[in-house]
Nucleic acid binder design. Structure first.
Length: 820
DNA sequence: ATAGGGTTAG
């Protein structure tokens, strides 16, 4: 014990403070340090109480007072036990506090409360409910303090069962009317996601101080109900309550997240007026707010003017840069942080990982992953979820899966990250399987999970699963916002159901959301309803809804699928003139596609030549595809050459080029191109078709004999072939681009994946029902013709969605009369 | 005698 402490102690005895607790000492003979040590027996317990009050901040003092208490045989006094417990646990000596508690001969409310508070202070949350139950079974009275402490533990433990029981007791006995207990109840309810009841408690309270307001405002912020949070803030100020730094920090968060720029800047002024200009918490919230408002100049201004910063301040600034796509600035700041010797934590790493994900920098992402393993941070949920997300965004699905499987603990966000990763990397079926696994492990989905599932269903064309997700959304009361509705519109449209998509759109139009409109335009476009797509655009203009560049991509695609050449050209002209949107590469690609599909190859070629920037592979591919369709071999070869020089490893180009040569029957050149592909390690994307039957999605590749019902499928196709031939069908072998004899060509045609899927559909779905096929590439002319015949013979409606559009076959006719 | 609210990251 340092000497100075003795002096401190002696001074305290010499000049006792005039406080209630010291009055005993003042009235008694003035004690000295010596007298303290040789204190006589039979001191009144109140003296120890006062001593503990005065010297509870030094362990050695507490210990010697404790010794004196034992010597004086007064340890049975329960309020002394409580004081000792409190002193020991404040000093972090929980085991000593526990010892006092265990040795208390008479357990009573005060002692138990002190022990509970001790557990809380030392983060031993799971001890608290045990103690609470013990109090119940020993018939020890429970008061408002007991409830408050126990509730706080339940909030940390997310133990809703015991917590709710306590809340009931609190309300029965009216404890919640006290501001401290009330705000604890509010916090607990908010943590359980029960904002409505929290608000009820808040409204019940007769006396609400700033902390109560902070609790309820914080709840609204946490539930992302920013407008309501802001409104409550004004109500609070209206009640004459002065905002605390916590209030301002909540308000700033609400402004930043909801994009209320004006109010946010006002709030900055209030922070200064309220003299909080040096509060690290508040300033960090300001940095965060400006980052969320994408005003990085103001964010860095605040950050650089801070006279002291916490690690969270640094992290907020780094994450702000990442969020706003300024990865270089984020890295520079990280270096500054490391150089300043401040160190960094998992929060810093998360932002950096997110930065890598954003720019698909797998190399640095791996380094960060290694760093996490080396630092033993593998149990950090947020961090590992970010890693899974990073690998997915970099296209490294396998590594993402490994990282995901290695995680011991996972939550909804982890599962969702993996799900989104699979779905966006084209593993929609695996994503749906993962979702089943997630349900088995009783992890409840959130709306992000469900939206990503909707995308999977859309990708697979799985109407059944898509519908079940839709009903799930309705049944569990998820908010139908523009994001949800857009995803559902897209799903229904891709599953060939334009009417439900329309209904969703009409019900959601009041949201005035561009993305929502874009999905509908895209949906109409896919279905060949070009005029309907244009109508949506007209409605947008009427409602003064500003179209964005995606709107025009969707519109031009729609025109292209419906052959609306003039309309497409007009739209292209007006996008810059009327809406100040400069045509980007995508738009050129759409217009070139539109023109070249319509056979205006020269016009398309001229457009490519007068583009203000170098055409991308997308633009040239559109032109190339037109050359193939309209059999312009010379232009096709030229474009293909140019494409290969631009994108050496694009499989599609080689396939298209070899198809052009094949149609010109230049088999040697076909073989040459195929050889090139082989040398360059490129493989043709295998064609496959999907069909949903029962609760399963069945996949068929061309000439696929791996399906269990293969023999039946084969037999049915043979019968169908005889029937369609009897109806006058003649095979068009021009789309078999291999140099084999005619009968082999016919055989190959009957092995096309869509035919296998259709046959399986006929075998496995009830008579008269609709058959829905999804194909990854485009349907060939011959399959198109055959499907028309089949739809007539079997009297079944058949919808085939291919890479480009829908083909709706009814009674020998197709919605798109013209194949292309 | 004992009391409640806050900043970053998936």
């Amino acid at each position: 014990m340092p000497l100075s402490s003795y002096f401190h102690l002696r001074d305290a005895f010499a000049k006792p403070r005039i406080s209630c607790s010291c009055r005993f000492i003042c009235n008694a003979t003035p004690p000295t340090y010596a007298s303290f040590h040789s204190a006589p027996f039979n001191q009144p317990p109140s003296i120890f109480s006062s001593l503990l009050h005065e010297f509870s901040n030094t362990f050695i003092h507490v210990k010697s007072i404790h010794a004196q208490i034992i010597k004086n045989w007064v340890s049975t006094e329960h309020f002394l036990s409580a004081k000792l417990i409190r002193a020991y646990s404040h000093l972090g000596f929980l085991s000593l506090a526990r010892k006092v508690f265990d040795q208390s001969s008479h357990l009573e409310t005060t002692v138990c409360n002190a022990m509970m508070a001790g557990f809380l202070r030392n983060h031993q949350y799971n001890e608290v409910p045990k103690l609470f139950e013990m109090m119940g079974s020993c018939d020890i009275e429970i008061n408002s303090f007991t409830c408050m402490f126990a509730l706080k533990a339940c909030t940390s433990l997310l133990d809703s069962e015991i917590g709710e029981e306590i809340v009931r007791t609190v309300i029965e006995r009216g404890f919640h009317l006290h501001p401290c207990v009330g705000s604890s109840v509010i916090n607990f309810l908010i943590k359980c996601g029960n904002l409505d009841d929290a608000r009820w408690v808040f409204d019940e309270m007769p006396e609400r101080d700033v902390v109560c307001w902070n609790s309820i405002i914080g709840g609204y912020v946490q539930e992302l109900l920013f407008k309501e949070a802001i409104q409550l803030f004004f109500e609070m100020v209206g009640c004459g309550i002065r905002p605390s730094p916590v209030t301002m920090s909540n308000l700033l968060k609400a402004c930043g997240r909801s994009g209320c720029e004006k109010l946010g800047r006002c709030a900055h002024g209030w922070v200064l007026a309220l003299d909080m200009g040096r509060d690290v918490f508040v300033l960090t919230s300001l940095v965060d707010m400006y980052s969320n408002l994408s005003d990085m100049d103001c964010a860095s201004l605040v950050f650089n003017s801070m006279c002291s910063r916490s690690l969270v301040s640094w992290n907020a600034m780094i994450s702000g840069y990442v969020q706003n796509g300024k990865i270089l600035e984020a890295c520079a700041l990280f270096q500054r942080l490391v150089r300043s010797g401040f160190g960094f934590d998992s929060g810093t790493l998360v932002s950096l990982i997110r930065g890598c994900a954003q720019i698909s920098n797998l190399e640095n992402g791996k380094i960060l992953h290694a760093c996490i393993i080396r630092k033993g941070l593998e149990l950090n949920l947020v961090l590992c979820t970010a890693i899974v997300d990073m690998y997915s965004k970099c296209g490294a699905t396998k590594q993402a899966t490994i990282a995901f499987e290695r995680m011991e603990k996972k939550n909804v966000i982890t599962w969702t990250a993996m799900l989104v990763g699979l779905s966006q990397n084209g593993y929609a079926e695996d994503a749906l399987k993962l979702f089943c696994q997630m349900k088995e492990e009783n992890v409840a989905a959130n709306s992000v999970t469900l939206v990503s599932l909707v995308h999977c269903c859309a990708h697979l064309g799985s109407l059944k699963k898509g519908r079940s997700v839709h009903t799930h959304l309705i049944r569990h009361g998820y908010a139908f916002d523009a994001v949800n509705i857009s995803a559902l519109i897209d799903m229904y449209a891709k599953c060939g159901k334009i009417h439900p998509a329309e209904k969703l759109f009409n019900n959601g139009f009041h949201l005035k959301d561009v993305v929502l409109c874009n999905s509908m335009i895209m949906g109409y476009g896919m279905h060949g309803h070009g005029h309907h797509a244009l109508n949506v655009y007209d409605r947008m203009i009427e409602e003064r809804l500003k179209p964005n560049q995606t709107t025009f991509v969707s519109l031009l695609t729609a025109c292209s699928h419906s052959g609306l050449v003039e309309e497409g050209k007009t739209l292209f002209r007006c996008m810059e003139r009327d809406h100040n949107i400069k045509p980007r590469d995508k738009h050129y690609a759409c217009l070139v596609d539109l023109l070249s599909r319509a056979g205006c190859l020269d016009e398309a070629d001229a457009l490519v030549k007068q583009m203000p920037f170098e055409p991308s592979t997308d633009v040239l591919e559109a032109l190339l595809s037109g050359c193939r369709t309209h059999k312009n071999i010379n232009m096709g070869i030229q474009i293909a050459d140019r494409l290969i020089s631009l994108d050496y490893l694009n499989t599609g180009i080689y396939v298209m080029l070899s198809n052009i040569y094949a149609e010109a029957r230049q088999w040697e050149t076909v073989n040459y191109v195929r050889g090139l592909m082989r040398i360059r390690g490129l493989k043709k994307t295998p064609a496959y078709s999907l069909i949903e039957a029962g609760n399963q999605v069945h996949t068929f590749f061309a000439n696929d004999d791996s399906h269990p019902s293969w023999a039946d499928i084969h037999q049915l196709l043979e019968n169908l072939r005889l029937e369609v031939e009897a109806c006058g069908y003649v095979p068009d072998t021009s789309c078999v681009l291999r140099h084999v004899n005619e009968s082999m060509k016919v055989k190959l045609l009957w092995g096309h994946s869509e035919r296998l899927a259709i046959a399986f559909g006929l075998l496995s779905t009830p008579y008269g029902s609709l058959i829905r096929i999804t194909k990854n590439l485009r349907v060939c002319v011959d399959c198109h013709t055959v499907t028309k015949y089949i739809s007539k013979i079997v009297k079944r409606e058949i919808i085939v969605r291919d890479a480009n559009r829908f083909h709706h076959f009814v009674n020998g006719e197709c919605s798109c009369n013209d194949y292309w």
